[in-house]
Computed example of a mutant assay.
Amino acid sequence: MKRFAFSQMDVFTGRPGLGNPLAVVHGAVGLSDAEMRRFANWTNLSETSFLLPPDQDGADYKVRIFTPKAELPFAGHPTLGSCHAWLAAGSAPKGDWIVQQCGAGLVRIKRDGARLAFAAPGAVQGDVTAALKARIAAVLGVPEAELLALRQLSERAPCWTGVMLKDRQTLLALKPDFTAMGELEIGVVAPIPGGETDFEVRGFAGDVGGEDPVTGSLNAGLARWLIPAGRAPARYVAAQGTALGRAGRVFVDHDGRDFWIGGESVEVVSGTLTL
């Protein structure tokens, strides 16, 4: 039996119960890949992260991120939640940035008031074929004409396809066919004119059990698409999780070089884990 410090975070919210939960295992040295996978499967959360000492120059810590089914090279809410937990445990960065090592390489994280924000890793985006557009329309249960724009947001896991709808009402009414969706990961966005937030987002993927409450990697991909395309301003706030009774808030800022994806995190559970 091995004992580890444990945190359960709620990410992209400052109020427990309104964001996306994340399990964090501190000091996970000595855990095998199989043990990490088994525990992540047991938590049944969309992601579980394991904090480790870095083995790459320039990194402050290393994180491994698992869904109940597989390991991910990068994910947004585990990045912010893990960093918050690492800092709350008394750790401090070596320099001005906090630098996270993960499967996607080194990721810079900065403090932004009560929030943390990560510089979104680069991603190769691409066009969506007519066949995929037709399939997505069928999965979402809307006419193809209601899909105003589509973009393949990343070529590596998580492989989100971005879809823009005309309004928030249409987005919140979506009832996807998850059986037909199969391996697809679909992120849907719609503008909110004159609201507290600028966009509403929903993320659908089988690996997270259907719909993800709040998704950092999806919002990073959407920012890389919408801002250069002139569909979003350089700074905006996205709401996500509304359809699930959550109130996630994602703060996006493009400073000309980086796409920063930020949000608050709050610790909900802390204690000792025995594995």
Rank of each mutant, 00 (worst) to 15 (best):
T129I: 04
Q169W: 00
F199H: 06
R224G: 14
P143E: 04
L132M: 11
A239R: 13
A232Y: 02
L150I: 13
R168W: 03
H254L: 06
R151M: 07
E146V: 06
F251H: 15
P176K: 01
T215V: 11
D167I: 10
A238W: 03
A220M: 06
I192H: 01
A173E: 04
G262W: 08
S154C: 08
Y236I: 04
G141Q: 11
R151I: 08
E211C: 11
G187R: 05
T161C: 10
H254Q: 08
W160A: 09
L226P: 06
S217W: 12
L222W: 06
D253K: 00
A205M: 14
R168M: 08
F251I: 06
V250S: 12
E200T: 09
A157T: 03
A149C: 08
M181W: 08
D207H: 09
W225Y: 09
A238P: 07
R249N: 07
I192S: 00
G245N: 14
A180C: 08
I227D: 00
G206Q: 14
A232E: 02
T242R: 15
P191C: 08
L226S: 10
P233C: 14
A247E: 09
L184P: 07
L140R: 03
K133L: 14
A130E: 14
K133E: 10
A229L: 02
A138S: 14
I227R: 04
L222Y: 01
D207L: 04
D127I: 00
W160S: 03
G230F: 07
E211S: 07
F204G: 05
R235T: 15
L244Y: 05
I186T: 02
R135H: 09
Q169L: 12
A229P: 00
L165K: 00
I227A: 01
R257C: 14
T197Q: 02
A180Y: 02
A238K: 10
D207Q: 11
G245C: 04
T161V: 15
V250E: 13
E196Y: 04
L172Q: 14
W260A: 07
G195D: 13
L222K: 06
K166N: 13
G262Y: 08
W160Q: 02
L150R: 09
P213R: 12
